[in-house]
Design a binder for these strands. Structure first.
Lengths: 326, 326
DNA sequence: AAAGTGCAAGAAATCGATTTCGTCAAGCAC
DNA sequence: GTGCTTGACGAAATCGATTTCTTGCACTTT
């Protein structure tokens, strides 16, 4: 790996001049040519590490998500990556597994690696952004927000919950249950509030036990669905607040031998594409990739020195297919 | 961010001593304590960039895959990440989109970022590993191999192709087609050779047009399946050489109104989990996560200075469910 | 013609760690 | 007691770029 000194020696100039050539400072035409030729000949690539040490910042964005195996976050990551690419940034993708300790560890790495900024979907309300913040590195929260004063991009979760539930009501279902994520996570809380608002306003039948909390995973959704089906008066439809739990719910229905056409399922998020799902399934499409793209754009603006007041961008989800009548 | 100098000043020792404390060199008990206390008090975290510049290497692994949105690669990435974590390494995940130009760009970044090593699933046979190789950074190929002399972890693709096809034969299908990936990609080539071997040996009916090439995506699989169904004498079963094309194929079957129970489909890879697929679907499970884990282990060994001769590890895929009789 | 202005470009400092080199003192052999 | 080894540890060099400081020269300006 050729260094700036070797290039300088070959071109017969000082290292400073070589640096200036590559950083757009005033250098005479002639020396520019000399330097470029020399660099070309030696296959010179500036050492990013040295530059970073000097400049105290890098072109790397840290993206922290709970689970890359969840297609929602994969799509989000893809959006971030695409946008970052365009500006010559690279993305380091880290899994927190919704574990605050892992999250903290990664945040420290981000700080000590001089990463340019962080996009995260916080594992808990108690994220400690202190280390990052004190370095003046921008942070953008995606999908979930935090009590820390940072930019955020989120989905209108309440509206999504309302849309999903309304679609079921309009399809003729009257006993609509809800499988929500862990209590206390704002994202899922808002979605379930959307459900609550609709079932209350529309005066559908709601029993004790119609609200189930589960973790965000397939197994949780399956267990919650089983519990719902075991009720004395079980629901005839369900809203699940994320994609994985919906899969679990569908599995439970299948195992119980219920014809999926007879049972309404509304999903906040997308099911993995395979075959067209049963007609009684409503998907509220969450714009994951767009979420990532937007977050990356905001972060890059901040990195570029933008100092406007904190922003929270709220993206609207859309219903994947029009509500159906039974 | 406190530096080693501030710690040294507070502890009343030289910066060299501070460094020694954190790098396991001989320092007296007493000064160790002084240094650790001072570091603690200042919240000192060593600056990775400075260290990297000096040591000429980092604790970052670069992982290049064609498409993170493909669950196969996501699982692979997860395996790499888990293993890397255990050794305190971070993983930078990059999408090549099977584009050699993007791939090259990322390889250059890996070099100029002093990344410790690269794990890649090469977009083409012409990957230029020159830059990386000349720096002495280890490289491990996953899933696909390259003409360059590097370690590799792959799947026994031929055996997987054989297993998939055999399962269909044993289930009673007699006109078995194959939807293979782009011609010239070794990985898919081997899988299709497995198919060919079985259909030849078992003397099943093979028509012109029973071998379809498609890109690796859903759309390609769907189009190929349509082409197969349009044949004068269409097949009664198909082997698809990756997961996404299988989804496309199933969609095409569905759209054509064919009962999936009547048509055999063998997939090399896993379908996204949703409901149990039709009984006529055979999945050959590819150990993606394990592939990633193994690749990361090998890379880390090399990074650690292992100089044993080049290795290629071949992992065996397993049939997700026993072959069925019709 | 003397003094002032502007600009290209070299010299040297800087970023923060690691590491080599050298010093000093303690411990030991003869 | 002299000489030699050994270990702790400070001083200073080093990694490779960026950036500030300076210098020197050309060109105005009065």
């Amino acid at each position: 790996m050729a260094t700036i000194y070797e290039v300088a020696a070959l071109a017969g100039v000082s290292p400073a001049t070589v640096s200036r050539v590559f950083n757009g400072n005033t250098v005479s035409e002639e020396k520019q040519r000399l330097v470029r030729d020399a660099a070309q000949k030696l296959g010179f690539t500036p050492n990013k590490t040295a530059r970073r040490l000097r400049k105290q910042s890098s072109e790397i964005i840290c993206l922290l998500v709970p689970d890359i195996e969840n297609p929602f976050f994969t799509a989000l990551a893809r959006g971030v990556e695409d946008r970052a690419q365009e500006s010559g940034f690279s993305v380091v993708l880290c899994n927190t597994d919704d574990d605050p300790a892992k999250e903290l560890r990664y945040l420290q790495i981000a700080a000590s690696e001089q990463m340019a900024g962080v996009i995260l979907s916080p594992a808990s309300d108690e994220v400690d952004l202190g280390a990052i913040a004190s370095l003046g590195r921008p942070v953008v929260a995606v999908d979930r927000t935090t009590p820390y004063p940072v930019d955020a991009v989120k989905i209108d979760n309440r509206a999504a919950g309302i849309a999903a539930t309304t679609a079921l009501v309009e399809a003729g279902f009257r006993r609509i249950a809800c499988i929500a994520g862990p209590a206390g996570i704002e994202e899922t809380e808002d979605r379930y509030l959307g459900w609550k608002q609709v079932v209350t306003a529309r005066k559908t039948l709601v029993r004790d036990g119609f609200l189930q909390h589960a973790d965000f995973r397939v197994e949780g959704g399956r267990a919650a669905m089983k519990a719902l089906l075991d009720l004395v008066q079980p629901p005839d439809a369900v809203v699940t607040t994320n994609n994985l739990m919906a899969i679990g719910a569908l599995q439970a229905l299948h195992e119980t031998g219920i014809d999926p056409e007879d049972f309404g399922v509304a999903v906040l998020g997308e099911l993995p594409y395979l075959l067209p799902p049963p007609v009684s399934v409503v998907q509220v499409r969450l714009p994951a990739r767009h979420l990532g793209r937007t977050a990356a754009s905001m972060l890059l603006e901040r990195i570029g020195g933008d100092t406007q007041p904190l922003r929270t961008v709220v993206l609207r989800a859309e219903i994947a297919r029009p509500p159906l009548s039974l």
